[in-house]
Design a binder for these strands. Structure first.
Lengths: 279, 279
DNA sequence: TGACTTATGGTCGCCTTCAACCATACTACG
DNA sequence: CGTAGTATGGTTGAAGGCGACCATAAGTCA
């Protein structure tokens, strides 16, 4: 009766590796393929593991945040290109404050491996840097919003009040001529604190955000130093932004599925995901 | 020439889901199976994805913390049993403060889905509860230690000073008659703050920790209310702990591979992973 | 002791997946 | 215009995984 032990070892094994083939498990546990199959059936029914053709996938841990699951293909290409343009403008040795949100998360992905200091209130962003020995990571504490995985509340704001960073990379739910808007009341306060802590402020927002308001006002355009968006931005908006004294970088949402109509990209570069036009 | 777009979408898709079958990808991307296969070959060579029989596994993100990868089989059975015993003693509606460490992580895993409030300084623990709507999560901020993924430093301690929790579940690197020891200087301070914030204190530590000192002294045994360990604990230690006025729960490290010599466990229960002896 | 339950390992068709090959369409280049 | 390179889709024989069935062993219960 060592079946419980074996299954326990099995799930440990799968958890550590994320995935294991039937053959791996036969070798690791020293039992027959049939037994492994029965174990997997049991564990799948129990919900701990998920079978695939040829192996098992760990299903127990790694909760996923809903916001990151729903990808809107139309915006993803833009988000990635915007993130690339923002990440290019952050240099080694800087201290970067990263907001929550999917676009800033993309920025964070591109910063992994760089020698920087990262401050963030976003749990997904923190995970990216947690095991990075090259980057120092400071996490803002407080209440964690279940939907987005960001830290909110007075504690986060208070800690921010005592920090100073080179660059803050902020997201926004909406942008109008008045300024930035966000969908969460507490988050707005935290973002205001982020603005105060920053030497310079980048805002990353795809063109669909412009002209939209959201629940709460965060800040006027005057506190922004650089705004990164995509080519979907109309000429009027570009002028309004320039009039507000904000630098604007517009990138092409190229490497994904959206429109990307008839022009010939003529790519022979391998890594650069987009071209950009600076005003 | 939309192959780069397609591959970009492919890896996005795989990243979000963690795993995707060939058929999923055919449906999602609207190209033939052959094309998908070629894409996967390319992406695998590039290192972004890992092929398995029947599908792909995302290989790019999800940095894993080294401490959680190395599983010492001899201790894992004990850790799991200890965690189960500790989790049983936490009731719905309580506020629980969870320390970092692998044993406390196991406790956290067992608490997922319960209606509790969780406070933690551990990033892996926070991830478990981040998308849990049933549990409220408060994360301590501060500098994140790259090896263990826990938040340290004055900010964490300061926030702790303003909190009060029902139960603190603490880990330890070593336990002697004098008390608890830990391997990290800053963490010791944070753990002292955790003790001050707690109504009652549980310490989870397998028997190998006893008699070992570590870098810094954390606290005397008198601040502990309950100590959970495994049957490897010698009779002398049990008496010493009892003499210090600490409740002791000893569990059998059964359901894993270690020794587990000649005694007959006689299990006919299905869910209880261990028997325990309360003093 | 005998019937029953459970755990395990082996085998046998059936189905899926794989890798390789071939045909087609499109582009680039001379 | 022809040739070469590339991207794609379809097919096919081979390999491997899958589920079901059966046999064996050990333990449980009456």
């Amino acid at each position: 009766m060592q079946t419980r032990q074996r299954r326990s070892r099995l799930i440990d094994f799968v958890r550590v590796r994320g995935f294991a083939s039937l053959d791996d498990l036969v070798r690791e546990l020293g039992v027959s393929e049939s037994t492994i199959r029965r174990d997997l059936d049991a564990l799948e029914e129990q919900g701990t593991a998920k079978r695939t053709h040829g192996g098992v996938l760990y299903a127990g841990g790694h909760a996923r945040l809903p916001e990151f699951d729903e990808r809107q293909p139309a915006h993803w290409g833009a988000k990635r290109a915007i993130a690339a343009a923002a990440a290019e403008r952050i240099h080694d040795g800087e201290t970067v404050l990263l907001d929550g949100g999917t676009t800033t998360y993309e920025v964070a992905r591109l910063l992994v491996g760089r020698s920087i200091q990262v401050v963030t209130n976003s749990l997904p962003v923190a995970n990216l840097f947690a095991s990075e020995s090259r980057a120092d990571l400071v996490l803002l504490g407080g209440y964690v919003s279940p939907r987005t995985g960001v830290c909110l509340g007075p504690y986060a704001n208070e800690l921010l009040g005592r920090l100073h960073v080179t660059t803050t990379v902020l997201s926004a739910a909406g942008i109008t001529a008045e300024g930035l808007y966000n969908a969460h009341l507490l988050l707005a306060e935290t973002e205001q604190a982020m603005l105060r802590a920053a030497g310079q402020v980048f805002v990353v927002a795809d063109s669909s955000k412009f002209g939209r308001k959201s629940l709460t006002f965060v800040s006027g355009l005057d506190s922004i130093d650089l705004l990164v968006s995509d080519t979907g931005l109309s000429e009027e908006w570009r002028q309004q932004i320039a009039a507000a004294g904000v630098d604007l970088v517009v990138v092409e949402p190229a490497p994904n599925e959206p429109l990307d109509g008839d022009h010939h990209p003529h790519r022979d570069d391998r890594s650069k995901p987009s071209r950009e036009h600076h005003t």
